[in-house]
C-alpha cells in the first residue's frame, strides 16, 4: 500500500499550530508590548503631568519585557493539552507530534528574536535620546541576556501540568522580568560585558534545554496519554 507523506515543514507547522506565520508572531511579540507600554506611559504622563515619571527611569524596559513575556507564555501554551481550545484539532493535523515539535522549536526561536528586536528598539530609542530605559547602552547585552534567561525558564511552563501552578510560575517569571532593568542597573556596577556574556551563554543553554525537555515531556506525559 502506498504510504502517505505526512510531514509539514517548519513554516507550515507554525501556521497550522498558531494560524499565523512565524514572522507575524515575531512582529506581534515586538509591536504589542511596545504599543501597550507606550500607551501606558502616555496615560501615566497625562494623569501626572510629569514626563519623567515614565521616561527618566527603568519603567519602560520593565513593563515592555513583562508584557512580552506574558505573550510568549500564551504562545507557548497553545494546544498542548487536548482539553484546551484547538487541542484536539491540532492532534489530528498532518505530521501529528512532529508538527508540534517543529512549531515549538520555531516559536522558541521566534521568541528569542522578538526579545532581541524589542530590546534593540528600546536601545535605539535610548540612543536617540527619546527615552531612558536601562541607564546606558553599555548594559544592553546584560539586559538582553537576563531577558533571554527568563525566556528559557518560561519554556518550562509547558511541563507544569497544574494550571494554577503554571500561572504562579508565570507570575514569578513576569515579576523577575520586571525587575531586570533594576537588577542590571543597581547590581552590576562593572564587568557588565563579562556578566552579559556569561548570562547570555547560560540563557542559550537554558533555552535549548527547556525546548528539548519540554518537547520530550509533552510527548511522554501529555501527547501519548
Amino acid at each position: 500500500m502506498k504510504k502517505h507523506d505526512d510531514k509539514l515543514n517548519v513554516i507550515e507547522s507554525v501556521k497550522v499550530w498558531y494560524g499565523f506565520s512565524i514572522f507575524t508572531i515575531i512582529l506581534a511579540l515586538v509591536a504589542y508590548p511596545l504599543l501597550m507600554t507606550f500607551a501606558f506611559a502616555l496615560f501615566m504622563i497625562l494623569i501626572s503631568g510629569d514626563r519623567d515619571i515614565m521616561f527618566e527611569n527603568d519603567f519602560i524596559g520593565a513593563i515592555a519585557l513583562a508584557m512580552q513575556l506574558m505573550l510568549i507564555a500564551v504562545i507557548y501554551l497553545r494546544g498542548i493539552k487536548k482539553e484546551n481550545p484547538g487541542g484536539k484539532f491540532l492532534r489530528t493535523v498532518k505530521g501529528g507530534f512532529d508538527t508540534f515539535a517543529k512549531s515549538t522549536a520555531s516559536t522558541t526561536l521566534g521568541s528569542v528574536i522578538s526579545v532581541i528586536l524589542m530590546t534593540g528598539i528600546l536601545a535605539v530609542l535610548e540612543y536617540s535620546g527619546i527615552i531612558i530605559t536601562f541607564f546606558g547602552l553599555k548594559r544592553y547585552l546584560l539586559y538582553v541576556s537576563c531577558a533571554l534567561l527568563i525566556v528559557g525558564l518560561t519554556g518550562f511552563m509547558r511541563c507544569v501540568s497544574s494550571y494554577v501552578l503554571s500561572m504562579v510560575y508565570l507570575g514569578i517569571l513576569v515579576g523577575s522580568a520586571a525587575i531586570i532593568p533594576y537588577v542590571v542597573n543597581k547590581l552590576f556596577y562593572e564587568k557588565f560585558i563579562f556578566y552579559g556574556v556569561i548570562i547570555g551563554a547560560a540563557a542559550i543553554v537554558m533555552i535549548i534545554m527547556s525546548t528539548i525537555l519540554t518537547i520530550r515531556f509533552v510527548k511522554e506525559r501529555i501527547w501519548d496519554r
Binding site: V16, G86, K88, G96
Partner: peptide, 29 residues
C-alpha cells in the same frame, strides 16, 4: 497514523478550533 490522518475526518463536540480563529483563518490552516 500518517495515512489515517489524511483519510479520517474528525471533529470534537466542543472547542475543536482555537477560539480566536475565524472562517478565513480556518480555511487557510
Amino acid at each position: 497514523r500518517s495515512d489515517l490522518r489524511n483519510r479520517i475526518g474528525y471533529c470534537s463536540s466542543a472547542n475543536y478550533f482555537p477560539l480566536d480563529w475565524n472562517l478565513k483563518k480556518i480555511a487557510g490552516v
